[in-house]
Nucleic acid binder design. Sequence first.
DNA 1: CAAGAATCCTGTCAGC
DNA 2: TGCTGACAGGATTCTT
Length: 279
Amino acid sequence: MPELPEVETVMRGLRARLEGRVIVRAATHRAGMRWAFPPGLAARLTGARVESFRRRAKYILMRLDGGASVLIHLGMSGRMNIGPRHPNAIPAHEHLTLETDDGWRVGFVDPRRFGSIDLVPTEAEDAHRLLAGLGPEPLDGGFTAASLSASLAGKRTPIKAALLDQRVVAGLGNIYVCEALFRARLSPRRSAHTVAGARAARLVPEIKATLTEAIAAGGSSLRDYVRPDGELGYFQHAWKVYGREAQPCERCPGAPACPGIARIVQSARSTFFCARTQR
DNA sequence: CAAGAATCCTGTCAGC
DNA sequence: TGCTGACAGGATTCTT
């Protein structure tokens, strides 16, 4: 599910519900997901006050009083169940449940269990092994055409694969890479090092715009993904290429030579693009 | 080293 | 209505 816009949406939902609250009960329902939960996770959460939230790449950081932060990754299928506290059974695939002092309940649901949870000292969040190697935040001012060109220099891998590499830029995933490349009219197969100069200057603003618009839409909703407030994100309706194989591309309507949006496989992931206008 | 493959896990959907 | 296989928003870890 979650790329940067979805993680940002989930983080904001958690912030609205949890910031300033005290966790009166916490329970894990299995030993871990991608990795084992840190020892004493539930005990550390119980009685803690939630001070603030932050997102880094596709990670959510929840700061607790006492100097610890909870580091959360939603993996491929992770989401948050948020609702009034109730005595019912634990929902399927809910691996962590929190209850607040004002009567709300937050459950981390992740059927595929590619997600993860860890604890990290708040003052050393960015030194955590999962955050230490991450590239720049795409929406930060420090992410520019010049910085992107520099990190792509010498890379022979396709630009599609390079943009999925979280060391190059942190937070993009399969959907938003496809969308940004379409908007920038760049072929996903183009060798990464050739995205410099004018091409990089075209791509970077489109990455930023795509993400900004997606955040404003509350992210993209696939399958059962819902925002923490229970609403559906609606950016999936704005996709130009993702999931639109063989459909006409909006850029070349009726062009007889246009075969429609193509789907190819790159590093074992689907890529969607318009072969006529993306060069 | 960089790049590609294998891997973790469950759910859904298309096709037979 | 089953069953099977392909595929899914990720990213680490292992192999070339």
